[in-house]
Design a protein around this nucleic acid. Structure first.
Lengths: 216, 216
DNA sequence: TAGATTGTTAATCGATTAACAATC
DNA sequence: TAGATTGTTAATCGATTAACAATC
């Protein structure tokens, strides 16, 4: 069981956790059972110091003179990130991006399930997306009251997003994964992760034009 | 014209540039012509010091006692990021995500154009996506040799991604925007931006479970 | 000119790296 | 036990913030 040792984990550390998750999953899939901080860090192109420092935010998962058990460490990271918990999600806005997300299989693998899909367009309502029938967004509040859900995904156009977010918040959603290009206003205690899809394209554009040195 | 004053711009600064771009675009759209670092920083929830420090990496765009002209500063940021240049892109892998990207209108607005789309699946080849006919990926190298293109977008499944990247690199692509869940190997001088769509979902998951304090 | 606000230098803060005692 | 490697403390590095002289 993970013990949070410090009140607040630095955000930089949290953002690295998905990478730890990914690399450990790959090592586990390869059947590697044991790894030292030195080796794991080399795989991730970070320093062993940083790796150990990062992990020490959450507890002591290794063994002196031995290293880490890959599967055990992966389990810890999963625990910290809240993966494999069976987290329920609903999605609003079944356009191209919404459909892409509903069909994205990696969520399932990590314990996230899209349980219902909503849209405003009468042409879209009733369609089946990856086996889920799209409901009218007018039924969103009622649905959420009957089926408490942790995460709401917003894939609507910008003008509709705030209204959808308000309904989600009022119906007890804990976190919003927002793909609409607009800053959402939510009360204390509700978390929003805003995905700016084109930000990394702009970074790429900058690097191409400035002959920026390679390597992340 | 922007003058690069230091050999290498810190990556943290580059990653903030798209946000400057966005906020300045919004201000410009609102018809705001002039802004001080103080006001602009407040809008972005950063400090005025950081804003001025960031801009100083690229030149001097303000005027003492006056502030910045919004449109002029936006033009500078666009220049630095290489926006509105008419950057050509091609996309390989016309699945749900690929189709979503081809239909994403914000690229056009910023001067990025998807000029051709490729897929391997005979069922998909020949389909029209947002007015672009999907070509067989076997013709990718030939296409790129005839039509030099700066950016390649990879939306294929993981197993196909490296092969596609190799063809792109050999055909002179300068940057790869990679949505396939695999680390691509590319030579010096070619830039890759890897989009890990579910990383921010995991961060959201962490925050929900740990009652992480609000505010980005 | 007086007031305002930049660009930049200096001070602080936080994150990364190095080093090592603890210990498996 | 001897060797290896962790977890953690201390040192370094880089990024953010504060302060202010330059100047519009």
């Amino acid at each position: 069981m993970s013990i949070i040792k410090y009140d607040v984990i630095p955000l930089v550390v949290i953002k690295r956790l998905p990478r730890y998750h990914r690399v450990l999953s790959e090592l586990s899939a390869k059947g590697i059972g044991r790894i030292s901080s030195q080796e794991l860090a080399a795989t991730m192109k970070i320093t062993a110091s940083q790796l150990r420092q990062d992990l020490s935010c959450f507890g002591s998962f290794g063994q002196q003179g031995y290293g880490y058990r890959v599967d055990q460490l992966l389990t810890e990271v999963n625990q910290i990130l809240g993966l494999n918990y069976g987290t329920g999600m609903i999605l609003v806005g079944a356009g191209f991006l919404g459909k892409a997300l509903v069909n994205y299989e990696n969520f399932q693998k990590r314990g996230f399930t899209i349980q219902a899909v909503f849209d405003q367009d009468p042409e879209v309502v009733g369609q089946s997306v990856n086996g889920i029938k799209v409901s009218n967004v007018s039924g969103l509040a009622t649905y959420l009251q009957k089926n408490p859900t942790e995460i709401g995904i917003i894939c609507t156009p910008a003008p509709a997003a705030q209204e959808v977010a308000d309904v989600m918040v009022q119906s007890g959603i804990k976190g919003i994964w927002n793909f609409a290009p607009i800053s959402l206003k939510v009360p204390e205690g509700v978390h929003v992760e805003h995905v700016h899809i084109s930000e990394s394209l702009m970074v790429l554009s900058f690097k191409i034009r400035q002959q920026y040195p390679n390597g992340d």
